[in-house]
Amino acid sequence: MQLAAIVLLTFRELWAKKIVIGLLIISTLIWVMLTFALNLDIVEGSLAGVRLFGQDATPGETQVNEDTGEVTRELFSLERIVIEIERFVAAVAYWAGILLALFATATLLPSLLAKGRVDLLLSKPISRAGLLGGHLFGVLLTMVALALYLFGMVWLVMSLKTGIWAFHFFWGMLVVVAMFFVMYSVVTLIGVTTRSAPLALIVTYGLIIASLIFTGKDQLVPQINPPWRQVFLGFYHVLPNFGEVTMVVLKLTGNEAVTSWYPFFSSILFGAVLFAAAFFFFNRRDF
């Protein structure tokens, strides 16, 4: 019952700060746009044309006949259109969605741990681990619900429009939620130790920006001198590879084989270590 109360408190706070409403509105705009602005002309089960906001946007690969100089265009298959649109949504959810969600949730923990408020919570017959765990569970549940709403509605709209039910789209959603939580581990650890939302955001966004450098690892490593190469590789293995995981999301959404799961699992490990540290410090600190 106590855990449910903390989950409820977290959700009510997200709701009261209009965070849930804001993210719901953005998600709604995306699927409504797909419903009304995207028109697919399907003739006998094949794609005949695509119109976006009434303009022709039929995608295809242009081919030039070298002998005759004739230009022809081979249209994308219907399945490929579905995949590309769902990939686009997954990429938007991964980058814009996670950045927005982190910005929106960064104040939650410092606010929960504010003087005068944390005293009341800790005076209840709940363990500290239960209190922090309840908060994290509340955030996770809310994010899963929001992601399900966005991915579910987009999937439903695309499936109804095309008759292609691409369930693999939801694997992408799971990675998006998992990576949000990996980055939320940074917010949690900094929130627990300093109660500062701005600092938590600066560090989290800093790590995301740094992860973009890691995406060029294969090109950069040969050009770095040996002592610094180890340092670079050390950071690459220790820090979350947010940038590289974009490919995991896109491959999963496109129902393609993921060439390397390493960036994803090393990021998960990073998140697990940071959460463990957050629980450790939360259990020990005085308020």
Binding site: R12, E13, A16, K17, K115, G116, R117, D119, L120, S123
Partner: peptide, 12 residues
Amino acid sequence: YLPENHQFPDFF
């Protein structure tokens, strides 16, 4: 327990 200078979530 009633702490000194307590705060409740003000949206309730």
